[in-house]
Nucleic acid binder design. Structure first.
Lengths: 242, 242
DNA sequence: TACTGGCGTATGGTATGCCATGTGCCAAGT
DNA sequence: ACTTGGCACATGGCATACCATACGCCAGTA
């Protein structure tokens, strides 16, 4: 099975000198997948102050606007429904779900649990080179550099946390946190400018890297957990949602 | 909105003396939902030694056997695909996914991370009565009673862990672990009879309850984590999958 | 004015048929 | 005997039409 594919790949390798660049040809994405991506990014980027009317979707209207039939669109919506981004109610409508503050707090809690476990695993599974790579995410913002580059810091911040999660080498932890990514990034972006949180964040990160490189499993886990739970407490106290 | 529904409920309450028992009438489940449930339980209960031919599903055949059209069946299959229970390949077929040992280990790891976080939360969120309720899951098996009731123990074991997770009062942790439930239960059932694990499990559980009731957050978290990671190590070493 | 009942419309659910493409069979050629 | 080309069939993707029900409008009644 798959012989023809193998031949094709072999041919490509052996012809590495030519300009021939075989590629997937078709964009490869099904209408369902494209509709899913479009809807997901639209929902994610939606203004949080949208009116109730904007929180409602219509299958026929959307299928017409995407230029596809209802069938693949419905499959995309069903997937978003399962992920909790929308809620489909029979014969009533499809509603974009507003995240409650409690749900945001739960997401941060789960993130704390999983990233701290990943940190624990990283002290055992990650190589010295991999751990050293973590410095790249924080060194650029050390000391005085932070103030000048605050704009970049928020993204570098979340990437640092994702990098730790990756070094845990647990695919399921990566998968679950990826699902929470958009929400957690949004809340980190929103809070990073408050109360000197960025500077304190950097200090925490350096301590975390030190613990990881010292292979201090318990300390690495604890520092990561406390770091993220502090974010949780901050959101709980000072951020106004709903 | 929903006025008629409210009237109905009020009527039911005020007529609480009569034999009239209004109920949902229709089973309420869509064909998609019913197909989903049927397929999920069928896959979960499938013999792990199924032949390759049995690992393949056919939309038309299944829709005929369920007595429904392909559309709701496809939606059910798409959901199972997203959950990772099956893999749908365009114009190739639908294949039941065999879990690799690495995936099982990842699930146990995530369970450990989330249950230990739940235990941490439970020391702060759960009432004394709620924590006392945990005894019900283990007292029946204390001491000599265990040997006589091994058959029941496996289920009581997993229910104990779910109870702790519930007391963390974090809906998302409950939701994620529910998704892992079937797999983790299966592996616990498979290993509980080995190497006196049941008896040691009981001891662990009693210590965990003690730590929770003492509101010792760090200890409760650690005991739960270590308890589940021991299961992970046991599976890693002694259980033969794939 | 307030309530009721029925009917039309909107909307998600379901059934069905066609389409594009991957696979395997089989015959023809070497 | 082995390769090759093409055809038939299998199979998931997609389009379309119809169905059942929730909601709202509106006339009719007291």
């Amino acid at each position: 099975m798959f012989h023809s594919t193998c031949f094709l790949e072999d041919a490509c390798l052996s012809m590495s000198g030519t300009a021939l660049k075989i590629e997937p040809i078709a964009e490869g994405l099904s209408l369902k997948a494209r509709a899913y991506d479009a809807l997901k990014s639209a929902i994610m980027n939606m203004n949080i102050y949208a009116s109730d009317a904007e929180l409602r979707l219509d299958e026929r209207d959307l299928s017409a606007r995407f230029g596809i039939s209802r069938t693949p669109l419905r499959e995309a919506l069903a997937q978003l429904d399962q992920e909790g981004l929308v809620r489909i109610v029979a014969r009533r409508g499809i509603f974009i779900v507003r995240r409650t503050k409690a749900e945001i707090l739960d997401m941060i809690t789960v993130w704390a649990a999983l990233e701290s476990m990943a940190a624990r695993l990283a002290t055992k599974e990650a190589s010295a080179e991999e751990l050293a790579g973590l410095h790249a995410h924080i060194d650029a913002f050390a000391g005085d550099a932070l103030a000048a580059r605050m704009g970049e810091y928020s993204d570098a911040n979340i990437r640092f946390h994702q990098a730790i999660i990756g070094l845990g080498k647990c695919a399921l932890i990566v998968q679950i946190t990826d699902g929470l990514f958009h929400h957690v990034r949004a809340i980190r972006q929103r809070t990073i400018f408050e109360q000197d949180r960025a500077r304190r964040s950097i200090v925490d990160h350096m301590e975390i890297v030190a613990a990881l490189e010292a292979r201090d499993t318990e300390r690495a886990e604890r520092l990561v957990r406390e770091h993220t739970l502090r974010l949780r407490d901050h959101v709980d106290r000072y951020v106004d949602l709903d």
